[in-house]
Design a protein around this nucleic acid. Structure first.
Lengths: 245, 245
DNA sequence: TCAATAGTGTCTTTCAGACACTATAAA
DNA sequence: TTTATAGTGTCTGAAAGACACTATTGA
């Protein structure tokens, strides 16, 4: 074999199957607030390995369809929930010899935040059951497929941590919402009461919301409706919410 | 072909080469403070693709040697720098069709912080040149191999961001150091002066350091030497350093 | 008018920035 | 005694928590 002297020539002779690469997939924790609870989407696996076990949604990269990792995550999310423009954040990548019985494997993990009213659940042939699971029932109890309990916990910790110093929860609400609804969303995720005045001052001073001019009415004083502006979906505060003293 | 009815049978018939998986690697930004500058380690590529270009250290997962992703990163770091117990943090994963001319590829990116006095640089056959590059010369200027400029920038942003609310810089110093040396390290990374009293109050109140009892002497008042305790390597503050008003 | 929720005024607390001050070494 | 750097005292300011207060609706 003669020596290679150009990049073009190198690539002509290159074959990925000469290399012993790990299996690579994308998995995700899809969060939503349903029945005033933070819930995560689970699928029951229809095939081996881990057949019959509940798992986080995910799957393999489609080298034709997907032009990058986020495409893979978005494609899976759309297939299961019908949501096409989620808040999507890469959380971490898990890779080891033992995490999948098929051998050395790597999974790139995303979390998605979606508003409950956008969701139309559907399954495909990789699973016939799909459900929302309250996160407090998942933190310790039932064993998900592979290392998905660990993966989920990592996502949940990331979410709780970022809710302390960002405005992420606006992504879990419909387009229009009241300040009380937003506060409740924060409180559900942090599992902690927040002082009303502090919360409103913090959010309003950050100028990440704008009034829509509409009101939410009920059997009491109507509340102003707001929507997130550009910044609102991703604002970082200088200080964390501290909680009760 | 008869249907598969057990996990064991499934795994017997499973062959990873039936699947079209992407090429997977690990890359890293190794930071150190050298000559009072934040610098990052670069290697000149000895082989195609991108032969002759400077690149971040990295390489493929060795499915025999490495039992997880961190092992791969640690193995590469040890080979180049001789450092075996770094501060090592997974930053992000880049994956796309175009980022490598060999086709769809994924790289898991780590950043490492190491103390200058621990380092013994060495190359292997994948490169014959290795160097420290000041980060301010890298942020915009010279084109690294593949998407390594983008990868580096991501690491650098992560580092600067975490230095505002953690004690990470202790990992860039030798075991013993003065408060002024620690402050200088923060200032170099943030590229911003920090008020002395605020800094010392913040660090000391967090109880992440302990006095070693030794003193750093010179042509002036000797300074107390400190070392990080368990918390010191990874402490998170409730509030960020804000900088001059 | 009452119940319920929206929304505000204002005090305290915490921790960062500013900056002038004192302390201790070598030359 | 001077110069250089280590280290402190104490004021101001920004933003969070506490909590009592007022506002506005339907029943």
């Amino acid at each position: 074999m003669k020596p290679i002297t150009s990049e073009k020539e190198f690539l002509k002779n290159y074959n990925i199957h000469d290399f012993d690469v790990p299996l690579t997939s994308v998995d995700m924790s899809i969060f939503s607030i349903i029945d005033d609870e933070l819930q995560v989407l689970l699928l029951k696996r229809n095939d081996y390995p881990a057949k019959g076990k509940w798992a986080l949604p995910g799957g393999f990269i489609d080298k034709q369809q997907d032009s990058n990792l986020e495409d893979t995550a978005k494609r899976k999310l759309l297939a299961k929930t019908g949501v096409s423009t989620p808040y999507l954040e890469q959380v971490s990548t898990f890779g080891s010899k033992q995490r999948d019985p098929r051998g050395w494997s790597v999974t790139i993990v995303y979390m998605a935040l979606i508003a409950a009213d956008d969701i139309k659940l559907s399954t495909d042939d990789s699973s016939d059951e799909i459900k929302w699971q309250p996160v407090y029932q998942l933190s310790n109890k039932p064993a998900l497929a592979f290392d998905h309990n660990e993966i989920f916990n990592h996502c949940y910790e990331r979410l709780k941590s970022k809710v302390q110093y960002t405005s992420l929860p606006v992504n879990l609400l419909p387009e229009e919402f009241t300040l009380t609804e937003l506060q409740t969303t924060f409180e559900i995720i942090l599992d902690m009461p927040i002082e009303k005045k502090s919360f409103r001052r913090r959010i309003l001073d950050a100028q990440i919301l704008e009034e829509t001019g509409n009101l939410r009415t009920g059997n009491n004083r109507p509340a102003k409706l707001y929507k997130a502006n550009k910044l609102g979906k991703d604002h970082f505060f200088q200080r964390s919410i501290e909680g009760p003293r």
